[in-house]
Nucleic acid binder design. Structure first.
Lengths: 191, 191, 191, 191
DNA sequence: CATGAATGAGCGTTCATTCAT
DNA sequence: TATGAATGAACGCTCATTCAT
């Protein structure tokens, strides 16, 4: 087992534990035990628990960005781009509910706050596609004349609520509903 | 200072602390100190930290429910009812950002989960207006043919995201934007 | 309700609580509540929890001493005196199991230790009858030639063990068994 | 210092503290301090204070059982077996007064009660020798016709009382007295 | 690199006692 | 006398982090 393996094991276990139980109910000792390493070993790969959590978040962000970019119909209409992205994000989180739960925990914690504040100026890669869609939409007068973060809220807020309900078992998302909701989000932002 | 004062002081301090720092970074000792009482005093009014948190939630729920019902245009069209409610909720949370932050913390914790599970069967008063709007809308074929929780997500998901951004300072919500967003939410759910 | 009533209520409740749950699981607040008085009221009658406990012990000691002396066959043979006393003590505690449990708790605590140490010199009233029996027995060469505390142990140790088992439900003491055990204790000390 | 050392240190200190001061006047912090470890360290070896206490009891029970069985005259007469055991127990506790005090505390607490209740059905090893003696005695018509717990009380109750007095300094037990008392206990149970 | 025993500050909670009313 | 709200030291216990091996 090489260095990368152990690091990956730790991250994997930590992601799942935190997604299921939250930061404060995921002690380092438990993460270590489930990852099959000693408690001290985690500190060879991560400076602190905070660093581990931030690393997990960075990791997820990269994976999600890549996922969105893969197969992105760069040449299609704004509407099609939007529907594509929305569908894809929804399906990704349905297939990876722990990633969704982790992200929710993250943004609902001091980590998330400072993270977002840092990103305010230099926009992240993740947002690039969003900006692509929303700015093009504004130029072409296709979208409502709203601040970008308002468009963002209208486009993704519902997905977040929906995912939460789905993961907690309050709702069964099927293909047809996903399609309708995705379309409804478009209705919300289009002019 | 009478009994109610002290209880109210504790709740007030706890609400603000928890809204700003989360449950796990709001020790009882700190709540007590900021409320100007001894640590043990909190336990005269609340059985445990959990009970304090649940009491805060119950309290907020009542206030929010009352706020929505106040001036509710029961005789108006569904669209007008919806716009009224959405606007009002948004304004309330803008004026009481700590209430919003607390609620977010609450629903993103074991408390919130079990709370929602309990409410699944016997719908709460809070939801009554929602159900009023959504069920009437379905009957009158005005709204999209979606599960109620999907409609709920489309109607309120954006507000949540928006509020978060507003509170964290990423966005300045003004009257005009509120009006546009509210309208956009209606576009999302209407047929 | 006069002063004595309240004092008596507090002592009564405290005795029962302590007998059932022990000293440290009988908070003053609970004693007060069950006695129908305020917590502070106890301190009008007793300086502290310790004083309350010591008062309870003194009270019981008096009652038990009186009980033994009542009907004591001062003119009978040593054997009959002894059997009388042993039977009577056993029956008393069977009828007042909480008194027994309290006494056990008491002697098994710092209170009991210091209490006994104090009594070492000036013998208590309680022991007077014992001394009567044991010293007479020694003079008349009826009893084994043992230190008084050894005789005491042989005469009462078994009763204590038996009472404990009886109260905890490990044994059902009936008249016949009491008679046999009492006789057996005599066998142990007689020459 | 190896793992066993630290565990043993903690147990040793806890035994002595509890024997002298009782369970609720022996805080974990004090045990830790006297054992030369940090408070948290105790929890590496024992799940809780309760577990520590139960472990102490189990440990003592084993030692005492072994002590009794060592040199037990299995082939001798019932009387000799009984005298052997009684003498040995008495001497053991005289040499290890803290073990006696601990056991007293233990059986005079919720721990002891539930422990005895559990043992009522599946008799413990410790009792095996007792049962050996008492049942054989009953069969051979040597002992009084009494319930086993009554015989037990007559045989050991006095030792308990005696030990208590000895440890508290109210009585100096010498060889001759031990012998006489042991014999007196036999007188109490024999037919 | 890896271990895991050890640390100790900090947590939620209890309760004997006080004191303003 | 009587109250009971208020106190705060002390408790059992957790866990992120360190360091000798």
């Amino acid at each position: 087992m090489n260095k990368t393996d152990k690091r990956a094991d730790i991250m994997d276990v930590a992601l799942n534990l935190i997604a299921e139980r939250g930061f404060h109910d995921s002690p380092m000792a438990l993460i270590a035990k489930q990852a099959g390493v000693a408690a001290g070993t985690i500190y060879l790969y991560f400076e602190s628990k905070d660093e581990l959590i931030l690393a997990l978040h960075r990791d997820l962000e990269v994976r999600i960005t890549e996922m969105i970019q893969e197969g992105y119909p760069a040449a299609a209409s704004i509407r099609e781009k939007f529907l594509y992205m929305n569908r894809k994000v929804l399906k990704y989180f349905m297939e990876n509910p722990f990633h969704f739960r982790f992200m929710e925990q993250f943004f609902n914690s001091p980590y998330g706050l400072s993270h977002r504040k840092e990103r305010l100026l230099g926009k992240s890669d993740k947002s690039k596609i969003m900006i692509d869609i929303f700015e093009q939409g504004a130029e072409q007068q296709i979208l409502k004349n709203l601040p970008m973060s308002a468009l963002f809220a209208l486009a993704f807020g519902p997905l977040q609520t929906l995912m939460r309900d789905h993961i907690l078992g309050f709702l069964q998302l099927d293909e047809a509903t996903i399609e309708q909701v995705t379309q409804a989000c478009w209705d919300a932002i289009k002019k």
